[in-house]
């Protein structure tokens, strides 16, 4: 009884979540896809490290941190370009994108140095 009701609740929850997410603008959806790709790549590397061992540890760190850094920067961009976010309503989206590009350049410069 309790189980079937909780399953139903979960289904209802997912349904409302999906319908709410369908209303998200396309450019935010693209950013979400990009974040998902980065997190997925990071997870693959962690699993790979668990299998083969941590020998080139600097390479592992730079590989994972490049994914994590990319994901974090993309999330920051998403916060700033979101029209419904009143906190950054004075910040033009072009300025937000320029910040994003600059931060990515610095991140990948560091990653390349540390990759070994």
């Amino acid at each position: 009884m309790g189980r079937s009701s909780s399953t139903k609740d979960a289904q209802a929850l997912f349904h409302s979540l999906r319908s709410a997410y369908a209303a998200t603008p396309v450019n935010l959806k693209i950013i979400d896809l990009y974040v998902g790709f980065a997190v997925f790549t990071a997870l693959i590397q962690v699993v790979y490290m668990a299998i083969v061992g941590s020998f080139p540890f600097n390479s592992f760190l730079s590989g994972v941190l490049s994914c994590v850094g990319t994901a974090v920067l993309a999330v920051c961009l998403r916060i700033q370009v979101n029209k419904e976010n009143k906190e950054f309503k004075d910040l033009p989206p072009e300025r937000a994108f320029a910040d994003f590009v600059l931060c990515n350049l610095v991140l990948h410069l560091v990653i390349m140095n540390f990759l070994g």
Binding site: I31, Y34, G53, F55, T70, A74, F97
Partner: peptide, 28 residues
């Protein structure tokens, strides 16, 4: 080091991803 190629691949795919994403984001 051959063992580290997946990590190299990940780092470079992040760069390529950033490049592609920028275009998609700007022209979508």
């Amino acid at each position: 080091i051959p063992t580290a190629y997946p990590y190299y691949g990940a780092a470079f795919s992040m760069m390529a991803g950033f490049f592609i994403f920028s275009f998609v984001h700007l022209y979508s």
